[in-house]
Amino acid sequence: MQKNLLLVCGALLCLAIAACSKTDVAPVDSTTEVLPAISIQSLNIVQQNNIVILGGSTAWGQGASSVQNTWVYKLRAKLKTVDKKDTIINLAFPGYTTYHVRATEGAKVTKRPDADTLRNITVALRKHPKLIIVSLPSNDINNGYTNEEILNNYKALVSTFVKENIPYILTSNQPRNFSYDQRLRLRNFTTLLAKTFPGHVIDYLNQLGDSQWSYKLIYNCGDGVHPNDRGHDVIYNAFINYAPFKAAVGMK
């Protein structure tokens, strides 16, 4: 009996020594829940390289023959040559107006669209942008909104940009297959916008349009509303040659 007990104790001692000679790492339990990787976004770290676009269908890419030919894609590629960390976050969507991009907490306006809580200024601010671009070239006028209400919506946006100390750029109207009176409004409102926010408006309306602000044939994608590849080039070049934009993104 004593001999058997000694043999058992010896065997246990050998097992203990062998176990101690291995690396002390806990085995992976397949039933243990694996925690998700932590992303930069989930850490809520302030990003200084985000450029956010609020806009409509042209900024979304409509009219171009491919994504690669849109002004936003080309601008994104250009900025990567300036700073590889720069990222364009494009929140634009077809049909959008100055009402769609207003702040989530803003008061609702009767017979006007609600703010899109996925694509508005409130979302843009959460991206901690170093620049915000607003490109809403004709949908407000197409929907029959007055110059006064459109301008007030821009003023509300800009007031927030200024309060948050965020550089901003607004784009001009674009040609559209409107009546002459509506096309004249495109020109007059662009002038009003530039006068109200001097040094913040890129104006390419006259480059894309003829003397009566319809699309020049070489820039019309065919629907009278959106620019083609060449038209997107005009917009892209207007950005990279605009001094306030170059200053905001660090271009020489």
Rank of each mutant, 00 (worst) to 15 (best):
V225N: 09
I202K: 04
D233I: 01
Q41G: 03
W60S: 13
L75N: 04
V158L: 08
I132E: 00
S30Q: 13
G224C: 10
Y99P: 05
A64G: 06
L118V: 08
S42G: 03
Q2W: 11
G144F: 04
A37H: 08
N177Q: 13
G56M: 04
N237W: 08
C14Y: 09
I89R: 10
K246V: 02
T122R: 06
V67C: 01
L157K: 00
F178T: 00
S214Q: 13
A77G: 03
A103S: 13
I169Q: 03
L208I: 05
T23L: 12
E149H: 02
R230A: 15
L131C: 07
V201C: 10
S30W: 06
Q41K: 14
L193I: 10
T190P: 04
D140W: 01
R112W: 05
I88K: 04
P244R: 06
L13G: 10
L151W: 01
K163P: 00
N165D: 11
L136P: 07
S65Y: 06
K22N: 14
N237I: 00
A107M: 05
Q48E: 15
R187D: 12
N142A: 15
D229E: 10
L208Q: 06
N90P: 06
K74N: 11
L75Q: 00
N177W: 01
Q47W: 04
V225W: 11
T81M: 06
N173T: 15
Y168P: 05
E148V: 12
I17T: 12
F197P: 03
Y180V: 14
L6D: 11
N237P: 01
L54M: 08
K22A: 14
A103L: 15
L7M: 11
R126Y: 03
S135M: 12
I169D: 00
D229A: 10
L54K: 03
T32S: 15
F178R: 02
K84D: 14
L118H: 11
L75S: 02
C9L: 15
C221I: 09
K85H: 09
I51E: 03
T191C: 02
D86E: 06
A248D: 08
A156M: 12
A59F: 05
I218P: 05
K163M: 04
Q212C: 06
L91E: 01
Y96S: 07
I89C: 08
E164G: 05
I218R: 13
Q207S: 08
N49V: 03
T196V: 09
Y215C: 03
L157W: 02
